[in-house]
């Protein structure tokens, strides 16, 4: 250990950059932390590849064999696209429980005391959670291939381009509930309570064109409904199937996703920051 020489010890601090740059840099740092964490636990990645096998292979396969007769569209592709979106949103939601781990390890204090907006922290957490989600989505495509379900290249690229927005919308919804929960057990339960109904309400495996009443309202306020619909619009664009599987104009869907995401982010971030400060 070197003896202390004050003048050399006190290095000049680098000039701080403009605010927008700093916010972006903070998002990158928060995201990178969760990605590093995911990469360091290969067990989690292996598990997240098992999910598609169960969801797509078992549940999806079963539905295809026993339920799909007499539909005016290709059920296999209908479900494949739904499952891809479902895995993106569902896995992001599950990974958001790491907010509670941060709180338990007091690392959240380190993040929250930093001079960046709370949005940068929350968005970084969501994007970090999206990393595993992307892996599971690729897993769904792989399982789909094994089952003989294929996507055209341009459809796959289109979905890939939309994936971050879809994860963001799911993660933003998750922050609202996760932001104020303090126990991991409760959080895991809540994840189940959101992701399971969401799968049916937003038309992942069963069309929702005829939903009415409460189910109709719920389906229309879930961002995932529009994600699924937009994904189907991208995949079936220009084919005769388009009209039988797509409910909304893609522009409307995009707008709805963006709008709902912003609303969820604002409410969720406020709740999260508040619950960390109010003790």
């Amino acid at each position: 250990m070197s003896a202390l020489t004050p003048t050399t010890a006190l290095l000049a601090e680098p000039a701080r950059r403009p605010t927008w740059w700093r916010e972006l840099n903070a998002v990158v740092a928060v995201t990178a932390r969760d990605v590093t964490l995911a990469l360091r636990t290969p067990g989690m990645i292996a598990l997240s590849l098992l999910m598609p096998i169960v969801m797509m292979g078992l549940i999806g396969g079963n539905l295809m064999e026993n339920m799909a007769g007499g539909l005016p569209f290709d059920f296999g592709q209908f479900m494949l696209v739904g499952m891809i979106v479902n895995m993106l949103v569902m896995t992001t939601t599950m990974s958001m429980t790491s907010l509670i781990d941060d709180s338990d390890s007091d690392f959240s204090s380190e993040m929250l005391v930093a001079p960046v907006s709370r949005y940068a922290i929350v968005v970084g957490k969501i994007l970090g959670s999206s990393f595993t989600a992307l892996i599971t989505a690729v897993g769904v495509i792989a399982v789909g291939l094994v089952m003989g379900l294929t996507l055209s290249l341009h459809a796959a690229l289109g979905l890939l381009a939309l994936a971050p927005l879809m994860c963001l919308s799911g993660g933003a919804l998750a922050v609202i509930v996760m932001g104020s929960i303090k126990s991991k057990k409760a959080a895991n339960l809540v994840v189940m309570l959101i992701t399971m109904p969401q799968m049916f309400l937003s038309g992942v495996i069963i069309p929702i064109g005829s939903s009415t009443g409460v189910l109709f309202v719920l389906s229309r306020i879930l961002p995932m409904t529009y994600c699924v619909d937009l994904a189907r619009a991208v995949v079936t664009a220009g084919t005769p199937e388009y009209d039988s599987v797509v409910l909304f104009n893609p522009a409307i869907s995009l707008l709805a996703i963006a709008g709902l995401t912003v609303v969820c982010l604002v409410i969720g971030t406020w709740l999260y920051a508040r619950s960390e400060r109010e003790r």
Binding site: E13, P14, R16, R17, W21, R22, N25, A26, V28, A29, A32, R33, T36, L37, R40, S105, D106, F107, S109, E110, M111, A114, P115, V116
Partner: peptide, 27 residues
Amino acid sequence: PSLDRTMTAEQNIRFHAAMYGLYPYRP
């Protein structure tokens, strides 16, 4: 203690430096 125990010491510092806008975050 408010460290991320799974990250390395340096990764904790790098995270902090990035949050304070001192340096661009690199992997």
